[in-house]
Design a protein around this nucleic acid. Structure first.
Length: 690
DNA sequence: GTAGGGTTAG
């Protein structure tokens, strides 16, 4: 839908008249076809071409194909193409070029094969385009065949064709073949040299790249940029910096290359200095910066830069929003995410499969499955990533059946699942306890799709079996794993033991885990909770002493809630918020109210070795309780409260939230570190199973 | 020919 919005309208006759007072119908149509169109507009234009009798006019009709390609509607172009009885070479070229520009390289190659089968002779316009597709897909046999053909046809001397061969061979990993072509060329231009250098870099042969660079008789900015980027890619920033300083002239790409070099090694300080210093910035400069901040988990810096970018003279594009959306996802800031989505529509940012994937992930992680589904259904291009993301979202929200439907969709449309797809499916099964389905998918992976289960898949299976109470089977599965079980796998077994009260095995597993990752607090906390629940206070105390000795600090619980686009963070017992007084007052009121309804704090969740009263206090000031209290005083009663927590929700908070949803008649959506809880009318979507 | 992008087990 947003694609419809993003197409500029067809220019009217009057708007063109300012440049050309009397355009002919032909000129008018040709000009119209220069900018992207919606499918409806394309149909209208096609009808006009037929009406005007211009179907024989290669220039106008060919432009229609090219217009389809810039409008992302290659299906329509193909529909028109298939109606032609004997398509001319010109139309094959236009179609292949269209496919290639839209990155449908397989379609480009298939059409090329059809063309050969129909004995249509290619020309020098066909070769570079087909070569590009062949090299992108690494189809060396097509590349070689083309090479033979070109030699036979005698158009091998064209520099552009030669250059395309160098590129193709190098992209297929055969730099020595590329070098043979390169060496035979008599009048090499600078593009040819640059392609050879880039080819060596693609093959990881940096030494040769440098050698060719030094041999160049004339270098342009691109040559320097390529070589500077090469040093950045290897992380040799010293050399990159030296070359950058030596460059006779620099353009924005030179600066971007260097900045992204610092970004890659995480030196955000030096990156920022250069960014502030550069004379002119383009959209890539901003994107490199924002992406780097996101990767370094400097989310607030990323958002701030995105804000500054909007008042700069550079417009954000699809790459920018793909960088920013994960920030919303991470913060669970639904309103902010929705704002970015609206921004995309309002500013006609191109919506491609990356943007859609990021949107689905954002909506999923912000708790709005409905919005995620809407984006999925409207997505014109669906690929493995997009579908896997949708499956993952449905799974974490406990909608296993719908996740299976997406998987069936993938199978019926030929979208190949990958290992991540199966992680999503297995997770979906384990959240709702569908053991049989999980086992089915686990075996399907290798038997039907030739994907070997990785440690992640074993982790999911242990979780699935363990949660459903098949603890022994889960344990057996770990023992039978072909690889070393990652601590996460043992962790899955441990939490199963916790749910099903298997103290004996829990102890064994937890001690092993503590040995494996002595600095991770979670294992101590889990085991200590298990001891406390079993009334083994001494051992719980012992464990805490051990923790202290090893200098392990308990990761503080932190919950965040976004109100009016401001993210409010709360730590347990935190009094830093500006409305702290009101929040604690509200919390007192809630507790008093819920106690009259039968709420009794379940103190076994508290780790502290203190008396009952203090234990209760610590419990009552858990971060999610503070966040909920804040939500209740700062939003109206119809607004669902959305909270993101960094740890797992404890038993007590879970009960507390269920009761609030009933007695305060409030919907609450809580994302903990591994799933969603939708609280409503006194119950939770996880069925107390988490 | 050169800079920037999406999913992943406790």
């Amino acid at each position: 839908m947003s694609c419809l919005l993003s197409s500029p309208p067809i220019p009217t006759l009057s708007s063109l008249q300012t440049q050309n007072p009397n355009p002919t119908k032909e000129e008018w149509l040709y000009t119209s076809l220069k900018s992207p169109k919606t499918p409806t507009q394309l149909k209208t234009l096609h009808a006009q071409i037929i009406k005007t009798g211009l179907t024989q006019n290669d220039l106008v009709f060919g432009q229609l194909f090219l217009c389809c390609s810039i409008s992302n509607t290659m299906n329509y172009a193909r529909h028109l193409f298939d109606k032609l009885h004997h398509p001319k070479l010109f139309f094959y070229n236009a179609m292949i070029k269209g496919y290639s520009l839209n990155d449908f390289h397989q379609d480009a190659l298939t059409l090329y094969t059809l063309m050969r089968y129909r004995s249509v002779t290619c020309d020098s316009f066909t070769f570079p385009v087909v070569l590009r597709s062949a090299s992108t897909l690494g189809k060396i046999h097509i590349g070689k065949e083309l090479h033979g053909l070109v030699l036979k046809m005698g158009c091998a001397e064209r520099l552009i064709v030669q250059t395309a061969f160098i590129d193709m061979y190098c992209a297929c990993g055969l730099s020595s073949y590329g070098r043979l072509v390169f060496d035979k060329i008599v009048d090499k231009d600078v593009i040819c040299w640059n392609t050879m250098i880039a080819g060596y870099i693609k093959c990881g042969e940096y030494g040769y790249a440098k050698e060719v660079f030094e041999l160049m008789p004339v270098r342009n900015v691109s040559s320097w940029n390529t070589i500077v980027d090469m040093y950045c890619k290897c992380g040799d920033m010293e050399m990159a910096r030296k070359l950058f300083e030596d460059m006779p002239e620099k353009d924005v790409i030179s600066w971007n290359a260097l900045i992204s070099g610092y970004a890659k090694i995480g030196e955000s300080g030096e990156m920022r200095r250069l960014f502030d210093e550069m004379p002119r910035k383009n959209v890539v400069s901003w994107n490199v910066m924002i992406t780097c901040y996101v990767h370094n988990r400097q989310f607030l810096e990323a958002l701030e830069l995105f804000r500054v970018m909007q008042v700069s003279d550079v417009k954000p594009n699809e790459v920018t929003v793909v960088a920013v959306l994960p920030v919303c996802a991470h913060l669970g800031a639904l309103d902010l995410g929705k704002w970015v989505h609206a921004y995309i529509d309002r500013n006609r940012v191109k919506i491609d499969v990356y943007v859609n994937t990021a949107l689905i992930d954002m909506y999923g992680k912000c708790g709005s499955v409905e919005d995620a589904k809407r984006v999925f259904n409207n997505a014109r291009v669906k690929d493995t990533f997009l579908c896997s993301t949708m499956i993952e979202v449905l799974g974490t929200h406990g909608k296993a059946k719908e996740a299976f439907t997406i998987f069936s969709y993938m199978r019926s449309t030929g979208i190949k699942p990958n290992d991540v797809t199966f992680v999503g499916l297995l997770k979906a099964c384990s959240h709702v306890g569908l053991v049989d389905a999980g086992v089915k998918y686990f075996f399907m992976m290798s038997e039907e799709f030739r994907l070997m289960p990785k440690v992640e898949h074993f982790g999911c299976m242990v979780d699935l079996l363990g949660r459903a109470g098949h603890i022994e089977e889960a344990h057996e599965l770990i023992k039978s794993m072909p690889m070393d079980p990652h601590p996460i796998v043992w962790g899955a077994l441990l939490s199963a033991c916790r749910i099903h009260g298997n103290v004996k095995l829990a102890e064994e597993v937890a001690l092993r885990l503590i040995e494996l990752e002595p600095q991770s607090c979670g294992n101590y906390v889990l085991l200590s909770n298990i001891y406390s629940k079993a009334g083994r206070w001494d051992e719980a105390a012992n464990l805490r002493r051990k923790m202290k000795e090893k200098g392990v600090v308990k990761k503080p619980g932190c919950s965040s809630i976004a109100v009016n686009n401001v993210v409010n963070e709360f730590f347990a017992g935190d009094r830093a918020h500006s409305r702290s007084k009101e929040i604690y007052k509200k919390l007192d009121e809630i507790v008093t109210r819920l106690k009259t309804e039968g709420y009794a704090p379940c103190t076994s969740s508290a780790l502290h070795d203190v008396d009952m009263d203090e234990k209760e206090q610590a419990l009552l000031h858990h971060s999610e309780k503070l966040a909920v209290a804040f939500g209740l005083i700062s939003t109206d009663h119809k607004t669902p409260i959305r909270i993101v927590k960094n740890l797992r929700v404890c038993d007590d908070c879970h009960l507390f939230l269920k009761m609030i949803s009933k007695y305060y008649n409030r919907q609450m959506i809580v994302r903990d570190c591994n799933r969603f809880h939708h609280f409503r009318d006194g119950s939770c979507s996880c069925s107390d199973f988490w």
